[in-house]
Computed example of a mutant assay.
Amino acid sequence: MGLWEDAKNIRDKDPAARNVAEVIILYPGFHVLVTHKIAHFLYNHRCFFLARFVSQLARHLTGIEIHPGAKIGRKLFIDHGMGIVFGETTEIGDNCTIYHGVTLGGTGKDTGKRHPTLGDNVLIGAGAKVLGPVYIGDNVRVGAGSVVLKNLPANATAVGVPAEIVRVGNIKCCPADDLDQQDLPDIVNQRISELEARLSRLEAEKQGEFPPDKKE
């Protein structure tokens, strides 16, 4: 049931997928789930070389690198997939969606549990990086290109470098591919605008246009 469920999930979430057969034959996001199950089985039975061999073969075939030790829940949807990396101690919950270019990696400073843990129903946008043993709560959305270095609570939306929480909804469940990428605030642009406004005020005060103690 597991792989058939995964294939149907991809068909349901990808508007370009016409049927389950197409997903099974043509989709690298499905192929890598198949090979990871094999590699993870070998890893758990301490056949580390064979496990890495299978995972590296999958990497060359799909462009997706998943360490054999990573734990993946049900109904993971990897869309496109090229450039995705999951580290050894990564844990992914059920019904998650991950776009191309995503890294669930380490910081290089941690030992033991070094990689992220994702709850259920999480979406990670294209090119985002989640680094270190951080926990990403259920129903979290991470905008494209963001860099997450801290834990994120359930139902949050985070964007930016480093990522900041811009929205927290009281949502019990929502589609794992539900994120309006065009409706997310530009954190960097907001910070620049705030700095420009502050600089303008300081220059005006220096020129005597506003007394230092006057409040606007």
Rank of each mutant, 00 (worst) to 15 (best):
3 L>Q: 07
4 W>I: 14
5 E>K: 15
8 K>F: 04
9 N>L: 08
12 D>G: 14
13 K>G: 08
13 K>H: 11
14 D>F: 07
15 P>S: 04
16 A>P: 10
18 R>K: 14
18 R>W: 05
20 V>N: 01
22 E>L: 11
23 V>D: 01
24 I>Q: 02
28 P>D: 02
30 F>E: 01
30 F>G: 02
30 F>V: 12
31 H>R: 14
31 H>A: 10
33 L>W: 07
34 V>A: 05
34 V>D: 03
35 T>Y: 03
35 T>P: 08
37 K>I: 08
47 C>Y: 03
51 A>Y: 02
55 S>N: 06
61 L>V: 11
62 T>W: 01
65 E>I: 13
68 P>A: 05
68 P>N: 04
69 G>H: 00
70 A>K: 05
70 A>F: 04
71 K>H: 10
75 K>I: 04
76 L>F: 07
79 D>W: 03
81 G>W: 00
83 G>Y: 04
89 T>G: 05
92 I>W: 02
93 G>E: 02
94 D>S: 14
98 I>Y: 03
99 Y>G: 03
99 Y>K: 05
101 G>S: 09
102 V>R: 00
104 L>Y: 03
104 L>Q: 01
106 G>Q: 02
114 R>K: 08
115 H>Q: 01
115 H>R: 03
120 D>C: 12
120 D>T: 11
120 D>Q: 12
125 G>Y: 04
126 A>K: 07
126 A>W: 04
127 G>R: 06
127 G>V: 12
127 G>T: 12
130 V>T: 07
130 V>F: 06
130 V>H: 01
131 L>P: 03
132 G>E: 00
132 G>H: 06
134 V>P: 02
141 R>Y: 04
141 R>S: 00
146 S>R: 05
146 S>W: 02
149 L>P: 14
151 N>V: 12
152 L>N: 01
153 P>W: 01
155 N>Y: 02
156 A>C: 13
157 T>W: 00
158 A>L: 03
161 V>A: 05
162 P>F: 10
162 P>Y: 09
165 I>D: 00
165 I>C: 06
167 R>H: 09
167 R>F: 08
170 N>Q: 08
179 L>P: 05
181 Q>A: 12
183 D>N: 15
186 D>P: 14
187 I>M: 12
189 N>M: 13
193 S>A: 15
194 E>I: 11
195 L>A: 15
195 L>F: 12
198 R>Q: 10
199 L>Y: 13
200 S>L: 13
202 L>R: 15
204 A>K: 15
205 E>R: 15
206 K>L: 10
210 F>H: 13
212 P>L: 09
214 K>Q: 12
215 K>E: 06
216 E>H: 15
